[in-house]
Computed example of a mutant assay.
Amino acid sequence: GLLGVISLLSLSLLEKLHLPLAILLLTVGSAGVAIADVTIDACVAQNSSFHPTLAADLQSLCALSSSIGALLGFSISGIFVHLIGPKGVYGLLAIPGGLVLLVGVLLNEPHMPNFNYRQVSDKFVSAGKAMWMTLKIPNVWRPCLYMYLSLALCLDINEGLFYWYTDSKD
Rank of each mutant, 00 (worst) to 15 (best):
I79N: 11
L64H: 08
V89D: 10
L99Y: 03
V28W: 10
A56N: 14
I95L: 00
D57E: 14
A70E: 07
L135R: 00
T134P: 03
G85L: 01
Q46T: 15
V103E: 06
G97V: 10
P138L: 03
I157R: 12
D41P: 13
A130R: 14
T166Y: 01
R142Q: 13
I35K: 00
V38G: 12
D156W: 09
A70S: 15
L99C: 02
Y146H: 14
L153V: 07
I23V: 12
A31R: 06
G69P: 00
K87Q: 15
L8H: 00
V81E: 04
G73A: 01
G73W: 01
L153C: 09
P20D: 06
K16Q: 13
P138W: 06
Q59N: 15
A45F: 09
G97D: 04
R142M: 14
G29Q: 08
V125S: 02
G73Y: 01
L58W: 02
L14V: 03
P143K: 09
V103R: 09
L21K: 05
G69C: 00
V44G: 06
W141S: 00
L99F: 08
L58I: 08
G104M: 04
L8N: 07
E15P: 09
S77M: 08
E109H: 15
G29D: 08
S65Q: 09
E15Y: 12
V100N: 04
N114R: 06
D167Y: 06
Y148P: 10
G78K: 09
K87M: 08
N114C: 03
G97M: 04
Y146I: 14
L92A: 07
L101Y: 00
V100S: 05
F162C: 12
D156L: 10
M147S: 15
V105T: 12
L58V: 04
A45D: 06
Y90H: 08
S30L: 10
F50L: 15
S60Y: 07
L93I: 02
C43W: 10
S150T: 12
G32I: 04
V120Y: 07
L26I: 11
F80W: 08
I137E: 05
S121T: 12
V89S: 08
Y90F: 15
G88L: 02
V140Y: 00
S60A: 13
V28I: 12
N139F: 14
V105A: 13
L135V: 02
F115N: 06
L26N: 03
V140G: 00
M131I: 03
L161Q: 14
L161I: 11
L101D: 02
V105G: 11
S75I: 07
G69N: 04
G32T: 02
L161R: 13
F124N: 12
P143L: 11
S66M: 15
P138N: 03
L11W: 05
D167V: 01
A22M: 05
V81W: 04
Q46C: 12
P20E: 07
D167R: 09
D41L: 14
P143F: 05
T39D: 09
L19I: 05
L83P: 10
I35L: 02
A42G: 05
P52S: 02
T134Y: 11
M147R: 12
R118K: 15
L8T: 04
